[in-house]
């Protein structure tokens, strides 16, 4: 039987079903356990970063190399023919004729969808402007499953900038397949957009807005923190408001023992370093899982088998 991701483009978290997400979460755990396997042997992957993003690029490229694949590509558009005025469509068609799959990041929304339509090989979106960054959500799911032992029926607080944060929007959408209870904690000016709340309502997902971090901590399994950006708030209010969304170790006294604190990183000051030394901190393990989640995704897209096997044995 072929796995559900084989030869697929991965552009938007909304394209992935519960089955797809479970496949990636399980495969990721298996790969973390097994250590490197040559699942991308003799595969050439193009890593096309039309916009610099060191963390995402290194994580993808590590995943490819750990699985024995080889890479071509570029880390920003400065030296590409995009500078000469070539369309993205032409660039991608050319690259697709060289490589077996394309990982791309691009500053404009919709670029990855367009690339997938013109490329004859699978395209994996590493971020298209402010639109989608599906592998961030995949590593979040992998980390949640890892630290909680399950994905179904969890209580999850999403904290910080819920209005503009694409990470929390995608995570809410993906977790929506697993019957969660959401608590939204944000400044009044940065609440979850109506269209996300409407789609959760339509899916029958329970959610509520909660005024403070302290109030929500005893109720949740996952505390997902995000950064409140200064430029989103009135400067005179920023210090006062942002301080209400800063997590410190002593605030976790009432937390459930299984609670884990997550953050997409980089953090600025929304998680005080005192939290790092508590058993609740999970953001560095989460970042490490980025490599396993991307290995799981790439191995599924590039290999038909739904079981972890590879030519020639281990």
């Amino acid at each position: 039987m072929s796995n559900p991701l084989y030869r697929r483009d991965v552009i938007s978290i909304g394209d992935l079903s519960r089955t797809d997400l479970e496949f990636i979460v399980n495969r990721s755990a298996e790969l973390k356990q097994s250590g490197p396997l040559p699942l991308l042997k003799d595969r050439l992957i193009a890593s096309c970063f039309f916009e610099a993003s060191t963390r995402t690029r290194l994580s993808f490229e590590t995943a490819v190399q750990r699985l024995g694949g080889t890479l071509i590509g570029f880390s920003d558009s400065g030296n590409t023919s995009a500078k000469k005025g070539e369309t993205l469509s032409d660039s991608i068609q050319m690259i697709a004729s060289y490589a077996d799959a394309i990982i791309m990041r691009h500053p404009q929304e919709g670029s990855a969808r367009l690339a997938a339509e013109v490329a004859g090989v699978p395209v994996i979106n590493g971020g298209d402007g402010a639109n989608q960054h599906p592998t961030q959500t995949l590593l979040d799911l992998v980390s949640i499953a890892e630290c909680q032992g399950r994905l179904d029926g969890l209580s999850v607080a999403l904290v910080g900038d819920l209005k503009y944060g694409r990470t929390v929007h995608s995570l809410a959408q993906a977790l929506g397949h697993f019957n969660p209870t959401f608590y939204f904690v944000s400044p009044d000016a940065l609440v979850m957009p109506a269209y996300i709340e409407d789609s959760l309502t339509a899916m029958g997902i329970r959610f509520c807005r909660v005024g403070s971090l302290e109030e929500v901590i005893p109720m949740v399994d996952v505390l997902y923190m995000t950064r409140v950006q200064k430029e989103r708030l009135d400067p005179t209010e920023y210090t006062h408001i942002a301080s209400q969304f800063i997590l410190k170790a002593d605030m976790l006294a009432q937390a459930r023992s299984n609670l884990r604190v997550m953050h997409p990183l980089p953090r600025v000051d929304e998680i005080h370093p005192s939290v790092d030394r508590t058993p609740f901190a999970y953001y560095f393990q989460q970042a490490e899982n980025g490599v396993y989640a991307r290995q799981a995704l790439l191995s599924g897209v590039m290999n038909e088998a739904d079981e972890l096997s590879f030519p020639g044995g281990r």
């Binding site: 369309t87 993205l88 469509s89 691009h106 500053p107 404009q108 929304e109 919709g110 670029s111 969808r113 367009l114 339509e117 298209d128 402007g129 402010a130």
Partner: peptide, 13 residues
């Protein structure tokens, strides 16, 4: 597309 940063503004699509 009303989104000025949408790729459709720059591509033959």
């Amino acid at each position: 597309c009303p989104n000025t940063n949408c790729i459709t503004h720059n591509e033959p699509v």
